[in-house]
Amino acid sequence: MVAIWKLIYKLNVEYLEIWKVYSFPSPTDVTKTLLNLIGDNTLGIAILASLKIVIIGYIIFIVIGLILGIIIVKFRYIDENLTSLILGLQILPSICWLPFAILWYGLNESSIIFIIVIGSVFSIAISVESSIKNINPIYIKAAKTLGAKGRRIYIDVILPASMPGFVAGMKQGWLFAWRALMAGEMLSATTGLGQILIMGRDLSDISQVIVIMLFIIVLGLIVENLILGKIEKNIKNRWE
């Protein structure tokens, strides 16, 4: 892929001169920018700042989404009247909430956390609601036959059986969280990856933009493969 990238750069920038140097960087330029960002610790500080915000927001919307999903399933009136609204709010891009975040919290980390939570919580609620409704009825019947009732059915049967779908929702929520994080950081006064990305745009430093994009991909894949992916695999193996 790097060789193809280099070939495209040589052909379109140096030989045919279709693109300008500042509009399409070479792998060498991106590597130099990466080393500079690592050398002055700019990248390290930005990664830690972004991870702190996204993890806080992630934990908050997981808890709220889990509770909201259970409430929707538990109360039929809420299910019939709020499910469509929640689906509509999930379709709404998280960037649409930015004006509210700025008015309520200002240009700081709290506003970004709000955008992450509001942009992702509904996907978790929908996943929980769908997972619980799709549980094999024989599990619940067997639990009732053995004497379980009330909250014990939820704690011992329904919630564990809905975990595969819930973890899938967690993975989707992680993606939504990163998108919301970038949208918030690019418009707020923070030291995260989004701010470095927007600085690269303002300075016409396309190499810096590419570096941040690559690191966002890498961080997302690390969490997906090393944490969420393993959790999902273990849960599926347990329930299959």
Results as ranks from 00 to 15, higher is better:
W5V: 04
I8E: 09
Y15R: 15
W19F: 14
Y22M: 13
F24D: 03
P25Q: 04
P25M: 02
T28E: 13
D29L: 15
N36T: 14
L37F: 01
T42S: 15
I47R: 00
I47A: 01
L51N: 00
K52N: 12
V54G: 00
G57W: 00
I59S: 08
I60Y: 03
V63M: 11
I64C: 13
I67N: 07
I67T: 13
L68Q: 10
G69W: 00
I70P: 11
I70E: 07
I71F: 12
E80D: 14
N81F: 12
N81D: 13
L82V: 09
L87K: 12
L87D: 11
L89W: 01
P99C: 05
I102A: 02
G106L: 04
N108W: 03
S111P: 05
I116A: 03
I116D: 00
G119Q: 04
I124Y: 03
I126W: 01
Y139I: 08
Y139K: 08
Y139F: 15
A142R: 11
A143C: 12
A148H: 09
R152L: 14
I155W: 11
P160Q: 02
P160G: 05
S162H: 04
A168E: 11
M170N: 09
K171C: 10
G173H: 01
W174N: 06
A180H: 01
A183K: 02
E185T: 02
E185L: 00
M186Y: 07
S188A: 12
A189D: 12
A189Y: 11
T190I: 03
L193A: 02
I196Y: 01
G200Q: 02
D202F: 15
L203F: 12
S204L: 15
D205L: 08
V211L: 03
G220T: 02
G220N: 10
I222S: 08
V223K: 08
L226Y: 14
L228S: 06
G229Y: 05
G229L: 06
I231E: 09
N234D: 12
I235S: 06
R238D: 10
W239P: 08
W239C: 07
